[in-house]
Amino acid sequence: MRSELYRGMFLSVTDDKSNKVTDYSELITVGNNNEAILTKEGNVFAKGKDIYPRNPNEFINISSLIEDTNDRIIKDVVSGRYSIYLLTSNQNAYGIGDNYYGQIGFDSETLERTEKPILMMKNISKIFSGNSSDHVFLLNSNQELFGCGDNISSQLGLGKSRKEQRIQKLTKIQKIPKGKIIDIQCGYSHSIMLIEDENQNQNQNQNPKRKLYSCGYYEYNGLGRNEYTYEFTEFKSSLFENDDNILDFSVGKEHTLILTSNSKLIVFGDNEYGQLGTGNTKNQSIPIQIELPKLRFNENISNYHVSCGMIKSFLYSSHPSFSNLEEDLIKLFRRKEFLQYFI
């Protein structure tokens, strides 16, 4: 699940000790019980009861808590449900917060929770988790994928032989689809992976073909099959045409939105709160196409993105003119009721 709100939002962060505005935010990410801001300077300010239980409403600079002072410049931050993950400029992955399922990569009996970032793995290029998930994936520079955390529904894609509820040590995912891993989004009990086919013959003006693969289980059968999927398996739908490609996708707790190059918005899964945008609250076990709203900034679909909270969804543009929406999001982010209404 994509837990980021908006890259490049102008949001100032004040250091309580110096009362100095640090800089503008590069990325905001939200979990079920945490919020984090990555600044342009490479600092991460975060809050949450599993991050700073003494004052869960106070933002603290968690990147400054990394023991290695040469590893405190952060280039990406990802929220899990009760944990936050940091990727440093040195390509090292750290975790902070809850570790009940081993989602920080350590035995939870010896490390139930941590209030400082703990080094999980080196030589990492990407971190994937979700704002309703207790599992995480780490991708290294050799395109090797590792996972840990909650696996009660086989959401780590480890196969039938690994049915443990908790995977408390980073474990290599042996069977992954061929191609380049572009993204992995994690729901509560499932994961969806976007793969780009690097070997497929393409015309000069065509983008490489992208496919979705899923594992785990949707309570509402949102993957179109009423069964557990123990390994990453290709997601297929008759709505995808031969000339259609996946531009973007996003995963909520139990719902999914997919945006395609043929201007299709495909949705499925839980719809109890109307998060699928179908105009009703009927759950969709089979993917359906819904009509795109009138595009606000321009008609180029490639400039648009979808983003899911736990029970809400957004369609937004990467166009730089964001003034009104930007202001609304900042106000929303600062509200105490933010988590209740957004996710």
Results as ranks from 00 to 15, higher is better:
S154R: 07
L158G: 04
E234I: 08
Y94C: 07
S161M: 12
S318N: 15
I62L: 06
F314W: 15
E272P: 04
N303H: 14
F268L: 03
Q289W: 06
S125W: 05
T256V: 14
L5Y: 06
S25I: 01
I124E: 02
N19E: 14
S108E: 12
N33L: 05
E231P: 01
S133N: 06
G157L: 12
S63E: 04
D68S: 14
Y24D: 13
L139M: 10
N131A: 07
Y6W: 12
S214F: 15
S79I: 04
F45R: 01
N33K: 11
N140L: 05
S189V: 07
L11G: 02
D76T: 09
K236N: 15
N207G: 06
N245R: 13
S285N: 12
P117Y: 09
T88M: 06
S313G: 15
Y273L: 05
A93C: 12
Y52A: 02
P53Q: 04
I62G: 03
K126D: 09
G277W: 00
L212N: 01
G102H: 03
N203V: 04
I74E: 03
L170Y: 10
Y101S: 03
K236Y: 14
N57P: 01
S307K: 11
L295D: 06
G97M: 05
F146W: 13
G224M: 02
G159Y: 11
T233I: 12
S133E: 05
T171R: 04
G48N: 01
I152Y: 14
T69M: 10
G8T: 03
I176K: 15
